[in-house]
Computed example of a mutant assay.
Amino acid sequence: MRILYIGDIVGRAGRDLVCRQIPHLRQDLGVDFVIVNGENAAHGFGITEKICQALFAAGADVIVTGNHVWDQREIIDFIDSEPRLLRPLNYPAGTPGRGVDVYELPDRRRVAVAQVQGRLFMHAIEDPFRALGAVVDECRLGAQAHAIFVDFHAEATSEKMALGHFLDGRVSAVVGSHTHVPTADAQILPGGTGYLTDVGMCGDYDSVIGMEKRTATARLTQVLPTDRLEPAHGEATLCAVLVETDDASGLAVGIEPLRLGGRLSQTPARHLA
């Protein structure tokens, strides 16, 4: 199975690029399942129902979010009715929405997608390790699901790496999001789990993590009030990762980053095509 995970969409520049590219990537790379992080898609802060529907129409199978999931209040009502939209699993009991679900492909193969949020340098929420441990104990790779994909929305690289090793051999892939900067450590861990510390963002990299650089820099260099942060509107780069799994075991047999367009060096997923 080929699973494409597309990193944090930031504003219109990222949105438009992702919606244009998903159909081509599905066809050119033989992708079976597409996951998109949309938590910064609405002008850099949260996501709306309209944006979700546009991403689904473009070919996204699941949208994950993160710490900005509630920035657009309208999503609170929508998320309970849309199983393809996930928020972090380790939010308190009673929080709207869900953090994990199993999705069936047309050929009857099943993909479990789970998202957790980190605790280092972020809000003090429930333990992501314990939350995911319970999930993989109940939904076993190669039994209840042909593939299990985990998005770890976290600040600290150490926390992300630790979760990768914690889940090694029990899930197909652990991929980090949130920092908006792609890392160069894509690998298959000893137990067979694909791992990448951060997939990066889909947005204009002539910016400060997707936001207009002048205002973002002013916030860090002066004590005066600044304008509201706005997404940068230049040419965007699409950052993603392609994971290929073995249908029998559910473990990864390949993992390769993908960067298209914009300012960053281009890395088409040649070896998995």
Rank of each mutant, 00 (worst) to 15 (best):
M1V: 05
M1H: 12
M1S: 06
I3E: 06
Y5V: 08
V10A: 01
R15Y: 04
R15Q: 14
R15W: 02
L17R: 12
L17W: 01
V18E: 00
C19P: 06
C19Q: 11
Q21P: 02
I22C: 03
P23G: 11
L25Q: 09
Q27W: 08
L29H: 11
G30D: 10
D32N: 12
V36H: 00
G44P: 09
G44N: 02
Q53R: 14
F56R: 10
F56Y: 03
A57K: 10
V62H: 00
V62W: 03
V64A: 06
T65H: 03
N67S: 03
D71W: 06
R73F: 14
R73T: 12
D80V: 01
E82L: 07
E82M: 10
L85Q: 02
N90A: 06
P92W: 09
P92K: 08
G94W: 00
G94F: 00
G94T: 03
V100D: 02
D101W: 08
Y103F: 15
E104R: 14
D107I: 10
R108L: 13
A114W: 04
G118C: 06
M122W: 12
D127H: 04
D127V: 08
G133A: 08
A134V: 09
E138H: 05
E138M: 12
C139F: 05
R140K: 15
A154R: 08
A154Q: 08
K160N: 11
A162P: 06
L163E: 05
L163G: 08
L163R: 12
G164R: 01
R170F: 12
A173S: 10
V174Q: 13
G176R: 01
H180F: 08
G194I: 09
G194Y: 02
Y195G: 07
T197R: 00
D198V: 00
M201G: 11
Y205F: 15
Y205R: 13
S207D: 10
G210A: 11
M211T: 03
R214Q: 15
R214F: 14
T215I: 14
R219T: 13
T221K: 06
T221Q: 08
P225T: 01
D227S: 06
P231G: 12
P231H: 02
A236E: 04
A236H: 06
T237F: 11
L238N: 11
A240K: 07
V243H: 10
E244Q: 15
E244N: 09
A248V: 13
G250F: 05
G250E: 10
G254P: 04
G262Q: 04
L264C: 14
S265L: 14
P268I: 08
H271A: 14
